[in-house]
């Protein structure tokens, strides 16, 4: 593998890791909140979270491209705060990935949280556990497997992202050229040997991750 390809591997892992951490920090409370409430406004927020599942990535890519540009407000605010430009940077990719992978994290968590019996929470409450205590000591341990599934799906989906990154990343080796883009670049340059290598690597990686995930008793996570 060439240095550019290694850079793409490192960049992809870094992007997936950073995005997954942010996704879990954002997605867990959001999923908990969504799972405990009902109503039209909840349905609206759920639909908003699920939008990336059905919309073409070009829609999100297009809006992000406009929003992150140096002449747009979000882009300007970012520049004021950090001194760096947001468009076509690693941070832009993280923002895109977090939005794009959000349903993959929120939906499994929401299902798991809904399945937590209210009686367990009530029991914990009678033992003096505050809501935060209940969440930490009852909900999280019960949903450990789902948390792992959510994190793994968020990670895998970020590794597999293409359309949004292509639109807001700009295909810059070592900076925004993640594996899927590097593969596209190889295909365009008709370097099919390198394309095969990257494609096969991605297939094997994703397959391994999903097998580990679906193997029911394997890791003995939760129940």
């Amino acid at each position: 593998m060439s240095p550019t390809e290694w850079a793409a591997v490192g960049l992809t892992l870094r992007l997936a890791l950073v995005s997954t951490v942010i996704l879990m920090l954002l997605g867990t409370p959001l999923a908990w909140w969504l799972s405990r409430r009902r109503g039209l406004h909840i349905a609206f927020i759920e639909a908003l979270v699920a939008l990336p599942l059905v919309l073409p990535p070009t829609v999100l890519g297009f809006y992000l491209l406009i929003a992150l540009a140096p002449d747009a407000l979000p882009g300007q605010v970012w520049q004021q705060l950090t001194g760096d430009q947001l468009a076509f940077s690693f941070s832009a990719l993280v923002i895109g990935s977090v939005i794009y992978s959000l349903p993959f994290v929120v939906q499994p968590l929401q299902q798991a949280f809904r399945a937590v019996p209210a009686s367990s929470l009530a029991a914990a409450a009678t033992l003096g556990a505050t809501p935060a205590d209940q969440f930490r000591s009852v909900v999280l341990p019960l949903c450990r497997r789902s948390l792992l599934v959510a994190a793994a799906l968020g990670f895998a989906h970020t590794v597999g992202e293409f359309g949004v990154v292509l639109m807001i990343g700009g295909n810059i080796p070592g900076e925004t050229q993640v594996l899927s883009i590097a593969l596209y670049d190889h295909v365009e340059a008709m370097d099919y040997g390198s394309a095969h290598r990257l494609a096969l690597g991605l297939v094997l990686f994703s397959l391994t991750l999903l097998v580990l995930l679906y193997r029911d008793r394997g890791w003995r996570l939760g129940r």
């Binding site: 240095p3 290694w6 850079a7 591997v9 490192g10 960049l11 892992l13 870094r14 890791l17 070592g174």
Partner: peptide, 12 residues
């Protein structure tokens, strides 16, 4: 994983 990323990143 984070350490791995940093190491790989150091290449360029």
């Amino acid at each position: 994983a984070a350490l791995l990323c940093v190491t790989i990143d150091g290449v360029g």
